Amino acid sequence: MTDQELQRLVERISLTVFGRPFLHEARFNRRLRTTGGRYLLKSHAIEFNIKQYEKFGLETLEGIIKHELCHYHLHLQGKGYQHRDKDFRLLSREVGAPRFCLSTEPEQPVHRYQCCRCGHIYQRKRRFDTEKYVCGKCRGQLYLL
């Protein structure tokens, strides 16, 4: 999907779901990592994470567009546009906009260690040297599962 196709999609969703035109710029931003999109207060532009579209498809992108359009329309109307505001929560529930997006970051592997003596299992994101560290409960030797 190109930026022009995204612009047309945002304009169409704005008219059909909100009944108001979207008069500013919508674009993809490849640098976004932990968020699905963002609404820029000064320029009124909306940026979207293209990885959300590539990984999860058009339906997820449409939900993110609805969420960001809630910020957009409420801000232009002078109402509460932040996540904690009642106006935002009501409008997002009314249009079916999701509150959170799915993670595009790859899941980190989990390393599991077990104590030889007491059998306690530890889960860690990083591997560690089992010669240096021992069980915190019984001081027993650990080994990687």
Results as ranks from 00 to 15, higher is better:
18 F>A: 02
125 K>F: 07
85 D>A: 08
96 G>L: 02
93 R>K: 13
20 R>D: 09
114 Q>D: 05
27 R>D: 08
82 Q>H: 10
35 T>R: 15
32 L>I: 05
15 L>E: 15
126 R>Q: 14
79 K>R: 11
54 E>A: 06
142 L>A: 00
6 L>I: 03
137 K>I: 15
139 R>Y: 11
56 F>Y: 08
88 F>T: 00
126 R>G: 10
139 R>A: 14
74 L>Q: 04
26 A>I: 04
130 T>P: 00
59 E>P: 06
93 R>W: 08
21 P>M: 02
94 E>F: 11
22 F>T: 00
83 H>Q: 03
138 C>P: 04
16 T>A: 08
78 G>M: 00
117 R>P: 06
36 G>R: 01
71 H>N: 09
73 H>V: 14
18 F>N: 05
108 Q>Y: 10
119 G>W: 08
47 E>C: 07
34 T>Y: 09
18 F>V: 07
117 R>K: 14
55 K>P: 03
135 C>G: 05
132 K>G: 08
96 G>F: 04
144 L>R: 07
64 I>S: 05
69 L>W: 09
116 C>E: 15
49 N>G: 02
75 H>Y: 15
76 L>E: 13
4 Q>C: 06
111 H>N: 07
137 K>H: 15
101 C>V: 12
17 V>F: 11
56 F>D: 00
3 D>G: 03
54 E>K: 09
95 V>Q: 01
86 K>P: 09
51 K>Y: 07
134 V>D: 12
67 H>L: 05
43 S>W: 00
8 R>Q: 15
91 L>E: 05
69 L>F: 02
77 Q>F: 12
95 V>R: 02
94 E>H: 11
132 K>S: 10
10 V>S: 01
37 G>P: 01
56 F>P: 00
73 H>S: 12
26 A>S: 01
7 Q>V: 05
64 I>F: 00
82 Q>I: 09
18 F>G: 02
85 D>I: 07
106 P>F: 05
120 H>F: 11
10 V>N: 00
91 L>G: 01
95 V>L: 05
8 R>L: 13
52 Q>S: 05
25 E>D: 11
17 V>Y: 06
44 H>S: 09
68 E>I: 04
4 Q>V: 13
124 R>K: 05
126 R>V: 07
11 E>H: 00
52 Q>H: 09
113 Y>L: 04
47 E>V: 08
58 L>S: 06
48 F>A: 04
63 G>Y: 00
7 Q>S: 03
26 A>C: 08
134 V>E: 12
